[in-house]
Design a protein around this nucleic acid. Structure first.
Length: 592
RNA sequence: GUGCCCGUAGCUCAAUCGGAUAGAGCACCAGCCUUCUAAGCUGGGGGUUACAGGUUCGAUCCCUGUCGGGCACGCCA
């Protein structure tokens, strides 16, 4: 194919915005002899009368140059080099410089979209740098619920976007398989197993209540019969007093039960512990896979203990003099790094805290050579940030490499009421249930339809009753409509690369073309700001522009040049819709 | 009580890190299918950006205070 961009600065990735910014930079270097510290910022205009791109440079220069912004703008415009893509430049308002992109440049841009295909929107600004996105990382103590779903959708979309702009991305799931919660789940399962053999012990109210615990007990029974059955008298030994007869509800009681269970089961405890872990992890993995969320690496917290890495990390802090002993425990001086208080890394009983293994985990991440480490956390962990960043600084690692993306929890509403959610009580709506109710596509899209640090009100009744009015269908419908037109046209799409796009002069058509041009910037901004929702909003706007076009214009007209030009346009729109949906993990159906 | 986040149309949310007349969707009202998919389109009403000050050419955005909401403040994970 012959090139349509004779003097484009970057023929591989025609980017008019950066091109114009470069022109203005050249102009500014002539006008303001002193060097400019700030980069030139161009924004897309909201109104067509303001051109395609606007720049506020003149207003920013007003103070240092001690001149009227409009006068500066005039000087800048005078100094702008000629460009084959620049139609005209105007001064407006308080001193805005409005740049108009040549219509021919917009028209020819279509060839670039068609040629790039599924690669359109991708770039190489990431330069192949190694980035890790760690997300979900839910305790494997029960099914994923709708809160996890948001982290999953966000992290997966973010990873896709970072990949699209040229980073080498690793998706990691951190398995909390070392803590007390796993012991509680093991105990819960064993108690349900005993109940299957008519040995009833009061089931602690603060143990895991969910039906899936009984399911696991049945699996163990089916595989091993009575092998793990023991009489309960030893189990209740030395149990702290019950507040009411037959009710176990304190943490001390739970701890004693766990300790007794370990004694009674001996070697067998590890089997049940391992069984429930494998079972829950497998369930979690399948659930996420069905949701289109796949991880490159599953990292076990337990492995940090097994390999001695936790002890090593703590020793390292000790060597650097950031630890001290008090009340029998070992503390890390996180207050040296702005934390509210110092934090325990090793308890009085000799056990390391979760924080200790997290220090080792992050040290390990740095040792793996990532240039950027992104932790996606639930917003309830925000207080945890200073101590982790503090530990990283204490280890003399670069805290700027670690970025914490906080995702607010999704709050579920049913019949206008908040749905209570607690994993242990078993009262929660699972991600699976949600996916079955509204579908994977709608769920993936709905989750990223708002900024991640905003609370998400998820109205189940609305999602269910209005599933056909979900915005995702609006976008998918636009995609399917194009497919339908192309099917009826019934010719090879390849010939559209010879279309005469100068036929596209209608205002709606030019607006659509400009929208396609915007896609690159949207993806890059989404990557820079960790903001997948920008893609979702962009796609809705693009679909909206398309639907209007569809209703106002007939594509399959007898005049072949007009027809092919319009088909080239809508084929390009379809391509961008598909590429954008792909980033969000949403399917792009040919038919609806 | 202390710290962090938030407060934008009736509802759910945007607003390209300080820019031009604050935008969408849902809901509501009035129209559009004999022609490429009506899961669509066109038009309409809807706002003192919680409140009060401050900073400057210019504030939803930055600063201070007040009110209201969420979260976190364990030798839990």
């Amino acid at each position: 194919m012959h090139t349509h961009f004779p003097i484009m600065i970057s023929p591989d990735q025609p980017n008019f915005k950066t091109h114009f910014a470069e022109l203005l930079r050249l102009a500014a270097s002539k006008v303001a002899s002193s060097d400019l510290a700030a980069p030139i910022e161009l924004t897309r205009t909201k109104q067509a009368s303001h051109g395609d791109y606007a720049c506020n440079l003149a207003m920013q220069l007003a103070k240092p140059l001690r001149k009227n912004p409009r006068d500066i703008a005039a000087l800048l415009i005078e100094a702008i080099p000629a460009s084959p893509y620049l139609e005209k430049v105007e001064i407006a308002g308080a001193g805005f410089i409005n740049l108009f992109l040549k219509t021919s440049a917009k028209q020819q841009f279509l060839f670039y979209v068609l040629q790039s295909g599924s690669e359109f929107g991708h770039s190489s600004v990431g330069k192949g740098k190694k980035v890790q996105v760690e997300f979900v990382s839910a305790n494997p103590t029960g099914p994923l619920h709708v809160g996890h779903g948001r982290g999953a959708a966000y992290g997966a979309s973010l990873a896709n976007i970072l990949t699209a702009v040229g980073f080498t991305v690793e998706r990691e799931f951190y398995i909390n398989d070392a803590g007390r919660q796993m012991d509680i789940l093991t105990l819960s399962t064993w108690l349900r197993y005993l109940a299957l053999h008519d040995i009833t012990v009061p089931f602690p109210t603060n143990a895991y209540q969910g039906e899936y615990v009984r399911d696991m007990a049945r699996l163990i029974q089916a595989a091993h019969g009575v092998r793990y059955v023991h009489q309960p008298n030893q189990l209740l030994q030395d149990l702290p007093l019950m507040s009411q007869e037959g009710v176990i509800d304190t943490e001390e009681q739970l701890n004693k039960l766990i300790a007794n269970t370990k004694t009674i089961l001996g070697q067998d405890y590890a089997y049940i512990h391992n069984f429930v872990l494998t079972e829950q992890l497998g369930d979690c993995r399948n659930d996420l896979m069905e949701f289109g969320v796949v991880f490159d690496h599953w990292f076990s917290e337990q492995s940090l203990f097994d390999n001695g890495m936790v002890a090593q990390a703590i020793q390292l802090l000790e060597q650097k003099n950031y630890l001290y002993q008090q009340d029998g425990a070992i503390w890390f001086r996180s207050t040296d790094f702005g934390d509210e208080k110092d934090r325990v890394v090793q308890r009085e009983n000799g056990q390391f805290t979760y924080f200790a293994s997290d220090i080792a985990y992050h040290l390990n991440k740095f040792e793996r050579g990532f240039e950027q480490i992104i932790d996606v956390w639930g917003a309830d962990h925000h207080g945890y940030i200073p101590r982790v960043k503090g530990a990283i600084q204490a280890l003399e690692l670069d805290p700027k490499k670690l970025e914490i993306a906080l995702v607010q929890f999704a709050v579920l509403y049913r019949n206008g009421n908040k749905v209570p959610m607690s994993t242990r009580s078993g009262e929660f709506v699972t991600l699976r249930e949600l996916r079955q109710e509204v579908g994977n596509d709608a769920a993936r899209f709905f989750y990223v339809l708002r900024k991640s640090d905003q609370h998400l009100d998820f109205d189940l009744d609305l999602a269910k009753s209005q599933s056909n009015e979900n915005p995702v269908y609006y976008i998918q419908y636009a995609h399917a409509r194009v497919s339908s037109v192309l099917t009826q046209w019934d010719e090879d799409v390849a010939i559209l690369s010879n279309a005469n796009t100068e036929m596209l002069t209608d205002l709606v058509e030019l607006a659509l073309l400009q929208k396609l041009i915007d896609f690159h910037d949207i993806v890059e901004t989404a990557a820079k700001e960790f903001a997948p929702h920008l893609i979702a909003f962009y796609l809705r706007e693009l679909a909206s522009d398309f639907h209007s076009y569809y209703n106002a214009t007939r594509f399959l007209v007898p005049e072949i040049p007009v027809r092919n030009a319009r088909l080239a346009l809508i084929t390009s729109v379809q391509q961008v819709l598909r590429n954008g949906l792909e980033l969000l993990g949403v399917s792009a159906p040919e038919k609806m």
